Simulated assay, not measured.
Amino acid sequence: MYNIFKCLIIVILINYSICSAGDHSPYYQRCLEKCSLLNCTDDGVGFKNYDQPTVLYLTQWSCGDECRYNCMWKTVDAFHERKWRTPQFHGKWPFVRILGMQEPASVVFSILNGYVHLKMVRKFRAEVRPDSPLTWLWHTFFVVSIHAWFWSAVFHFRDFLLTEILDYASAFSMVLMNCYVMIVRLLRDKIPRFALVTITTFFIAFLVSHVGYLSLGQIDYGYNMELNIFVGTFTAICWFGWCTYNRIRQRYVWKCAIYVALTGIVMMLEIIDRPPFFYIFDYHSLWHLSTAPLIILIYSFAIDDCRYLRKKEIESPENGKSKVP
């Protein structure tokens, strides 16, 4: 499975490297040079005799950014007049800017995911007693996830090196958190407390190390993708094995299995590399949209699981009954 995903990622990277015909075209380069000369100050930030709209000023669109945006659409029109396909610019498809947002659909759908997390954690708190086993784990899952979707929205709103690093780092933290949740749940009552502290420390150290590596100059996209796929695949295999083993005594585990399966399936949207519909909805944004309902599924599993663990805790060996498997 990992090798299959690896091949797909290689295809993505190849497309990323060869599909920036727009910004490499002489038409775009001439347009950019002329626009900068006529409209921008020497540093490319300020404007000559132009009052920039407030929303664009607040979202830090410099004169150089404005020239790149306007020349991008002129180049797209020139390509279409020659019956050529829509080109990419700097590895990205052209998007209509809305209220300063570079990729408006991805921004909205990232916010949607954060909203669903917020709604479901409230449902979790309403239906699960605070002293139930592993409530701390799912609250930590919520904090990591809401943080990741926040930076996803920020990055798609405005693409800077800092926002890109924070988006990639927080996205990996969510993948790593899924793995951590899986390990803690599967090994519950099978490892001593100090071992849990060791595991937690390892995960935090690994995340810090990865973020530090991403922050060193240019982001290593290939390494980041492969690491995410490896951790995600390992997590999925372990969850499937556990769900299969407990499918009789814990019938609610189907929710976890379906969540893991659908998460892998909808990720295939990342493979599709086509121009965005109406220059707003690309397949990456649709991937963000498709993950929102899956959040409901995993929290529903968490609610059932914490209830199950609490019931088994009450029926502990002290009461003459078997402990949780």
Rank of each mutant, 00 (worst) to 15 (best):
T59G: 07
F157K: 05
V45S: 09
S290I: 01
R82Y: 08
M101A: 10
T235S: 11
S17V: 03
D65L: 03
C35K: 02
T291K: 02
C179M: 11
N113K: 08
G91A: 04
D167V: 09
I295A: 01
L207C: 10
S145I: 01
T198V: 11
L38A: 15
F277K: 06
R125A: 14
I98D: 00
L286Y: 06
I237C: 05
F230P: 02
L216I: 14
L187E: 10
K34W: 08
L8Q: 10
L8S: 12
C19S: 14
A236D: 04
T41D: 10
A148V: 04
L58F: 12
T75D: 03
V143H: 13
P192E: 00
V45E: 12
I4M: 11
W287S: 00
R251P: 13
I265K: 01
I296M: 11
E164Q: 15
L32S: 15
R158T: 07
S132I: 01
F79M: 08
G22D: 05
Y69L: 02
I18F: 11
W84N: 15
L162S: 12
Y180C: 04
N319H: 14
A169R: 00
G91F: 06
T135H: 09
P317Q: 02
T86A: 07
N3S: 15
D51P: 06
F301W: 15
H117W: 06
T59Y: 06
N319K: 14
N113S: 13
F155D: 07
V55E: 08
A302E: 08
Y259W: 15
T201P: 00
R82T: 08
C63E: 06
E103L: 00
S170E: 09
R68Y: 08
F160C: 10
G46N: 09
L166D: 09
G114S: 02
R310E: 15
E103H: 07
T201G: 13
I219P: 03
D305E: 15
D43A: 09
